[in-house]
Amino acid sequence: MATRRRFLAGVLAAGLMPIRGWASVGNPKYLSAARRPKGGYVLVGLRGDGALAFEVDLPARGHAAAAHPERAEAVAFARRPGTYAVVLDCSDGTVLARLEAPQGRHFYGHGTFSRDGRRLFTTENDFDGAAGVIGVWDAANGYRRLGEFASGGIGPHEIVHVPELELFAVANGGIQTHPETGREKLNLRTMRPNLTYVDGEGSVAQRVQLPDEWRLNSVRHLSVGPRGQVAFAMQWQGDAWDAPVLLGLHVLRQAPVFCEAPEAPHLAMKGYAGSVAYCGSKNWVAISSPRGGFVQRFDSASGRFLGAVGAADVCGINGSRGGMIATTGTGLVIGIEDRISARHPLSFDNHLIAL
């Protein structure tokens, strides 16, 4: 198998393998990591109606994935503080490459491709230096590592490409961790999360800081909306009853807009937004809370609260032109406003990646 993988990586790098696009694996609209009922982990493709398009094995629990813009190829990341990611051919589960974090680094579970699919960017922790870095990988030549650059903060959890700007947005959560202490938060007294915009070489275009009184509001997940607007979801590190807003909207060079829900639905989120996504066909954005069991919707222009939908252990959300769907740890796929409902013998993980 190792020889076969090296061969496949070689012909892929040489451009000799015909490109198999996402149509070859059932035209999925979304990707999600999941766990089978009797153990074992998979990466699945979901169609717009919630049906399974494909299912391929993962070596361990996955967190999120990066979908190649052209090939039916996905990079599945281990849950932090994981040190591996696997590049999968989604047609048959073949491992095309395996990414290992360099010594002194671990992945945060997220990554994104450049617009042309030639480079992959991964969020990483320089844990001895207590700094965030973005790893750069040559997706056009066997996923060899090209280097890294500073993320603009501590704890870069997610990175997304903003096509309108030809920049990348980075959610620097602000929380310092070290593998020797697991997921223990080492710097709550001094943490300062931010949203940073960088180009593909690491030059900073803008860094957006939260107000001082919200410095415990860890910026964790991102979504890109129309005209380059970036939504950022936060996770409060203080008492849940004292949590500030959990969603911000930002356009480069402008002041952020913070989305405030009424008191009761806000408290129901328990200070935790697990995912964020725009609805592709409508002017709204949503955040989910598996702890609270709700998806909240906000107007993407004004930040006005539009309502909430309840679902136990809901976290994965994403939208396309057909609407928005959500996935749960109980195996449900549900439509937000739309009549989509499916159940699978799987426990979906935190994120739903749109293709």
Rank of each mutant, 00 (worst) to 15 (best):
G323K: 01
A9F: 09
G248M: 02
A354M: 13
A243S: 13
R189M: 05
A150W: 03
A150H: 14
A169D: 11
E166K: 14
Q254P: 07
A301K: 08
P345Q: 07
A2T: 11
P156E: 04
G142P: 00
L43F: 03
H161L: 08
P262S: 02
M1W: 10
G62H: 10
P226V: 09
N283A: 11
A64R: 07
A243Y: 02
K282I: 01
S24M: 07
D199F: 01
S114D: 06
A301W: 02
G104F: 01
V11I: 14
L96W: 00
P193L: 15
R304L: 04
A233V: 00
V219A: 15
D116A: 01
V160C: 03
Q176H: 13
A65Y: 01
C90N: 08
A354F: 12
G40H: 03
V160F: 00
A74D: 00
G26E: 07
R253L: 06
V208D: 09
L96V: 12
Q176Y: 15
M269N: 12
R183T: 08
G174Y: 02
P69A: 12
V333A: 15
L186N: 08
M191L: 14
H63P: 11
R343F: 07
D128V: 08
H178K: 01
P211D: 07
D199I: 07
W214H: 15
S114C: 07
G153N: 01
H266T: 05
